[in-house]
Design a protein around this nucleic acid. Sequence first.
DNA 1: ATAGTATTTAGGAAAATATCTAATAAGATT
DNA 2: AATCTTATTAGATATTTTCCTAAATACTAT
Lengths: 177, 177
Amino acid sequence: MDATLELLKALADQNRLAIAAMLYREECYVELLASRLNLTSATTCHHLKKMEEAGLVTCRRTQFYQMYSLNRDVLSLTLEAFLQADPDTRDADRKYRDEIIGSFFRSGRLTTIPAQRKKREVIFAHILRDLKPATPYTEKEINEVILACHEDYCLIRREMIACGLLRRDRDTYYVLR
Amino acid sequence: MDATLELLKALADQNRLAIAAMLYREECYVELLASRLNLTSATTCHHLKKMEEAGLVTCRRTQFYQMYSLNRDVLSLTLEAFLQADPDTRDADRKYRDEIIGSFFRSGRLTTIPAQRKKREVIFAHILRDLKPATPYTEKEINEVILACHEDYCLIRREMIACGLLRRDRDTYYVLR
DNA sequence: ATAGTATTTAGGAAAATATCTAATAAGATT
DNA sequence: AATCTTATTAGATATTTTCCTAAATACTAT
């Protein structure tokens, strides 16, 4: 996940914000935070791990306790900085597509067909990536491209048409975009 | 919800962060954002409403379009400011309890018994709010207090003991805390 | 008015996240 | 080593959030 987003998510939760506010004043150990928040240690630990991965807190051991403290240097960041950190939306977009593709393909084969329209479109566009837009293809050619990563070429071909990625004109198919 | 939390949540989502990044450069209308993000207008609208409620964006109408733009003044806030804005944890705590109570009580009656321990404890403490700690009560007295908001006093009394809010000693009950 | 365009609301399904209990690990003390 | 104390992980359930479709609304222009 994007580091910017990860950091924002680490703070955008009632309990984690309260944890951060407590750590802002003094370093604390897990059970102390848990009892103040009325949560179990396990849940508190889970939150702290998330905050740690996001680079918001660090911990060190002292005797029995794992003392957690805030990373002071990230605190001076402004919201504007987060927006500037994301200067090229197309970049974010590409990264996002890669994530989806990575999670639905396993060694070149499509494992399942995503339920969300957005993800389906990304996957379908990926399958058709080597075909040229506005160029006529036979049904056989289309089927072969799909078969390279999933056996149910009929379903997928139909879905591609439904989401406007593929157009059929008699025996001829065209890729759009 | 707490304003601080609301603002953080408004940014801590992949699509909303991307929306903010686009609005940072130029004001946009709903469908433009939707097409760039590959979402429906309805979903995009939903995100924008959230951002608007959090005070992150505003909109004005121009001809066909609803033009959304960023509220520049919030952009200069630092993460540190969010932690300082939440100086009294007890306040947040009380607010949180009120929310839970509000969502499980309907005109003085407990509608359902929450499954989560944390919420159960808040609800039970609320039911027992008028009883004094460390003071002996008869079972009948306890039952009446519970019956005032829920008919299944046996279940609730047992649960109160299970979570350590109530202690039984022969025929006598004590409220803890 | 009426048709066209953009936005918003409502309701529900799917996905992501938070929370719990129980089991395990890691370090300190005896 | 044996035991105690705190922390973490695993697996299950509950809750919240995201996202869609369909319907309603708001505004513009003919």
